[in-house]
C-alpha cells in the first residue's frame, strides 16, 4: 500500500506560518506581553459540554485550550501574557478543523472588552494590511439578516426558521440561533471586512462576564471577529467571580450528564486560583491555522498544516 507521506501544505505555506509567528512574537514583545508555556497534558479538562477533550489514560486530558493554566498564572501575578501552543479537540475534523491545531491566546489585565478588540484589530492590521473593520452587536446583526430577534422571538419561530435552512430536528432555541448564525448570518458578512460581533446572548457566555442590556436582557461580554468567511478570534471580558465559576462548572457538569458525555470534574486548581483573586482582565483566543487560511485566502485547513490528522 502506498502511503500519503508527503505534507499537504506547500513549502510556501510552511514559510508563511513561520513568518506569521515571528510577526506575532514581535507584536507582543513590543507591547511588553510575556510569552508563556503551560502544560498540554493535565489532570482536568474543560467542562464545556460542547468541547470534547482527548483523554490520555493514566494522565488526564490533552488540553483543549491553555485557558485554565493561563488564568492560574494571572492569579499568581504574571501580568499580561500570551501563548502559542497546540490544542486538541476530539471529533473536530473537517475542511476547516483538525483535532490538533495551534492556538494563539493572550490575556490583558486591566483591559476591558473594547480595549482588547482594539488590540486584536491592531494585530490584524499587520496580518491583513488594508482590511477595513466594522463592529456589530450580535442581536442587531442577527435581526438584520434573519428578521428575527435571537432573544425575544419565540423558541418555536427560531427553531422553525433553522429547520427551513436545513437544520436537524429537535434543536433547542440556543442551538437554533447558533445554527442560523453559522449558516445564514455569517454568510451575510462582507468577506473582505474584519467583522467584529459583540454582545452575544448570555447562554453563549462560557467563561465571559455578563451584563444587563438597556432593555433588561442579559448579554455576554464576548466578541468574535470574522474575516473571509472564517471565525478568527473569540474573546471575553473574563469572569473573575469564583462562586459564579463554580456554578458554571456545576451547570456544565449537569448538561454533560444529560447529553450522555463523560463527567468532567471542576478543576480545583482554577477555582482556588480564582478564590485567591483573578485580576480584572480580558482574553482572546485565535486559531493560528485560521489566521494563515485568511492570509492565504484558503478554505481548507490541510493547505496550512504539514500533516493533518488523517496522515499524521
Amino acid at each position: 500500500m502506498v502511503t500519503d507521506w508527503r505534507p499537504t501544505a506547500s513549502l510556501e505555506a510552511i514559510k508563511a506560518r513561520a513568518g506569521l509567528l515571528s510577526t506575532v512574537r514581535a507584536f507582543f514583545a513590543a507591547r511588553g506581553v510575556l510569552e508563556v508555556d503551560t502544560p498540554q497534558l493535565a489532570r482536568h479538562g474543560v467542562s464545556d459540554p460542547h468541547i470534547q477533550c482527548i483523554p490520555v489514560p493514566g494522565h488526564g486530558y490533552l488540553q483543549s485550550s491553555p485557558e485554565y493554566h493561563m488564568k492560574r498564572l494571572l492569579a499568581a501575578g504574571s501580568g499580561p501574557i500570551y501563548q502559542i501552543c497546540k490544542a486538541y479537540r476530539d471529533g473536530e475534523a473537517g475542511a476547516r478543523h483538525n483535532p490538533e491545531f495551534t492556538m494563539l491566546e493572550w490575556y490583558r489585565p486591566g483591559f476591558d472588552l473594547s480595549a482588547l478588540i482594539n488590540e486584536c484589530l491592531t494585530l490584524f492590521g499587520e496580518l491583513f494590511p488594508g482590511a477595513p473593520s466594522r463592529t456589530y452587536r450580535f442581536r442587531d446583526l442577527f435581526a438584520d439578516v434573519t428578521g428575527l430577534d435571537p432573544l425575544t422571538t419565540s423558541d418555536s419561530d427560531l427553531i422553525q426558521r433553522a429547520e427551513q435552512h436545513g437544520a436537524p430536528e429537535d434543536l433547542d432555541k440556543a442551538a437554533a440561533v447558533d445554527y442560523l448564525m453559522a449558516t445564514t448570518v455569517e454568510a451575510a458578512l462582507p468577506a473582505e471586512q474584519l467583522s467584529v460581533v459583540t454582545d452575544f446572548p448570555s447562554w453563549a457566555a462560557a467563561l465571559a462576564q455578563t451584563r444587563t442590556d438597556t432593555d433588561g436582557t442579559e448579554v455576554a461580554l464576548r466578541f468574535e471577529i470574522y474575516y473571509r468567511g472564517l471565525e478568527l478570534a473569540n474573546g471575553y471580558q473574563e469572569l473573575t467571580d469564583a462562586d459564579e465559576q463554580r456554578r458554571r462548572f456545576e451547570r456544565d457538569s449537569r448538561l454533560r450528564g444529560e447529553y450522555g458525555l463523560n463527567v468532567m470534574d471542576a478543576d480545583p486548581y482554577l477555582l482556588d486560583a480564582m478564590h485567591h483573586g483573578l485580576p480584572a482582565c480580558s482574553g482572546v483566543a485565535m486559531g493560528v491555522e485560521r489566521l494563515l487560511m485568511a492570509q492565504r485566502n484558503s478554505n481548507r485547513i490541510d493547505e496550512v498544516l504539514t500533516f493533518p490528522g488523517d496522515r499524521a
Partner: peptide, 11 residues
Amino acid sequence: EFVKPGKGQAF
C-alpha cells in the same frame, strides 16, 4: 464539514 458556531452546539 464540521460547523461549530460560537460556543454552542456543533453540527
